[in-house]
Write a protein that binds this DNA or RNA. Sequence first.
DNA 1: AATGGCGCCTGAACGC
DNA 2: TGCGTTCAGGCGCCAT
Length: 280
Amino acid sequence: MPELPEVEVTRQSIGGIEGARVLALRLGKPLRWPLGVAPDAIAGLRVGPVGRRGKYLWLPLLHDPGAPDGAAAGGLLWHLGMSGSLAFGSGLGPPAKHDHAELVTDRGALRLTDPRRFGAVVWSPSLDEPPARKLLAGLGPEPFDPAWTAAALHAALKPRRTAVKLALLSGELVVGAGNIYASDALWEAGIDPRTPCARIGPARARRLHEALRRVLGEAIAAGGSTLRDFRNAHGEVGQYQGQARVYGREGEPCARCGRPIRRIVQGQRATYFCTGCQHC
DNA sequence: AATGGCGCCTGAACGC
DNA sequence: TGCGTTCAGGCGCCAT
């Protein structure tokens, strides 16, 4: 579930953890990557403001002011993988089968539930040092960064020959669009998902730039998409799936031209689009 | 260098 | 309490 909107909704819903003191970090079955630090080593640290880069969450952990070793101790990089979600609260109950990480604080526990265990919690001394530096290297620009312009998108498209849908999924053009929002943004922009990137000129790049921001922004406002597992940290489902343009709507009429929406496979992933109003 | 494909895991839905 | 197959929203790694 988690693409940028779901991760951002999660970030916003765990804001209450800022300022909490870490009591313990408990791990269940192995996640995608090892934690990289002894869990005991972070006890006593304070949680700073939660950040997001692409589909990663960054939970800064700080020493108390005036501590001899400075303010920033490091932080935890969280990734929700394909099936992860976070819950935060003081009454979560005992961990269940798919709860594989839990940061216990004096304001409640932050718990990662992740059936498929493609998610991760990784310690890093900062975002600019390994392992965070390596994990975040190669990520494209943030879609809502004012510095990310239509011209920048066009320049990033120009040297690529791959299909634009696949390029969007790679996160190199811009971060955050996964399978749902890549399909929907391309419908919004009227671009066939099979179009080679290099064939997209400035006008269509501008439409795609606008479409990505619109679709991702609407999805955040809708609380994300809940196809199966996703919940925000308060346990609430998202609503975007009900307003998706094309994702998951094979055979239904296109909202713009009425033709049936088609499903194809690109890079072993489903792509949904309208043959009537999306052009190569 | 760029690109395409694989595999990590588990659970649900489907066809037989 | 049927069983085997297919599919699922991510992403690092490998071979080409």
